[in-house]
Nucleic acid binder design. Structure first.
Lengths: 213, 213
DNA sequence: CTGTTTATGTAGCCAATGGCAACATAGTAG
DNA sequence: CTACTATGTTGCCATTGGCTACATAAACAG
């Protein structure tokens, strides 16, 4: 029985690590600061020294989550292959992350826009779309994709894959395999970008025919 | 001061109504059964007679939410116009609902797959995709869309719009207008379906080139 | 109408939680 | 050595969800 030192030393990291385990196991609502403290053999108020309140802890988790996710996506975007292959790989990286850390993902997104989130937290979610934007612009320049509003296309791709990731993470695709869905989604998006969207004048959708931006 | 009757009479509905207000105001975590009871001038244990626990109340909210959302989507799918116009309108109906009831939407989806949700709750989320499936099949038969796996295409469309709806609901589209995003998404998806996806043999994505189903 | 059963609401209790303040200990800098 | 600060502890509090026992009303059976 080596008696524990008065100071834990790495409480902050330990809290984040243990909290990550817990939320993936029992969900955010099952996360208790006091239980967390007990798990780490520390007094119930100790977490308060590192995270002012529960939300601050969740913010910390979200930040770590974004860092880790962005690293994976960036790595995927830098692999070799043609534009389309990289597009698919980026999508897979995103969806894989979502499936591996479903609860974390919801924490990340529910946290990102609450009033007093840190600047870093508010900006770090944009990496994914930046990467998509760059890739699409490149592919357009290479003549592989029809020309079109890069900003809008990147946003649409991001949003679509986000949906796939969330549904996959939430286990809402009863039969379908996640990989198949991811692939089908990239396939359809890419096909749309290859074909290009109809010129604004031709759109006849019953609405005002407005364009993005 | 008419003194209140011992029996509220419509407590269940009142609880759901008030709970809906509350979650949209302060989020799910700000929802307290006891506060709810106080708001309705009823004892703290009264809600327990209608909802065995908090989760049951959330399930109730989710069910109502799906009913209301499906009604809107169905109405949109039955409006007149060509296939494409109806596709856009369905998407708009979904996204509009999401933006109007952002928190409810998360409750709906986080609730849908927990172990002991009712059968009705587990199935009611599928209406959207059923409608998409029907519309796409129709448009394919009419020769408006290239042929392709309806099941897969419908799922991809559903998933993409779900992503748009969630990001819109979460207020994560910093600059972009929700309507513009919705329209751009339907535009790109439709363009992809008009063009059709490449035949399986041609796919060269660096992965195994598998198909859905 | 009367007595019984069932639905609905109340009151009191409990353990657990998040948060706060007062205190203790240990590194660190002067 | 002495302050100072960071980190951890203890004790306290109001609030919460949930449970049980009880009260009242409504529905129903004879």
């Amino acid at each position: 029985m080596t008696d524990l030192p008065y100071h834990h030393g790495k409480l902050r990291e330990a809290l984040l690590a243990r909290a990550t385990e817990i939320i993936e196991g029992v969900g955010v609502e099952g996360l208790s600061l006091r239980q967390l403290a007990r798990d780490l053999g520390v007094s119930h108020a100790a977490p308060g020294k590192h995270f002012r309140d529960k939300q601050a802890l969740l913010d910390g988790l979200a930040l770590d989550g974004f860092r880790s996710m962005n690293a994976r996506i960036t790595a995927a975007s830098e692999a070799d292959g043609d534009h389309r292959a990289r597009f698919v790989r980026i999508a897979q990286a995103y969806v894989d992350f979502a499936v591996s850390h479903p609860v974390l993902l919801t924490v990340m997104h529910s946290t990102k826009h609450h009033p007093d989130a840190s600047d870093e937290l508010r900006n770090i979610g944009e990496d994914g779309i930046r990467i998509a934007r760059a890739l699409i612009a490149e592919a357009q320049d290479a003549g592989e994709l029809a020309s079109g509003d890069v900003e809008s296309l990147a946003l649409v791709c991001f949003v679509s894959l986000h949906g796939a990731a969330l549904l996959a993470a939430g286990n809402l695709l009863d039969g379908a395999s996640v990989d198949d869905l991811t692939f089908a989604t990239t396939e359809l998006l890419w096909a749309g970008m290859v074909a290009g969207v109809p010129a604004p004048a031709e759109t006849r959708d019953g609405t005002s025919g407005r364009r993005l931006r």
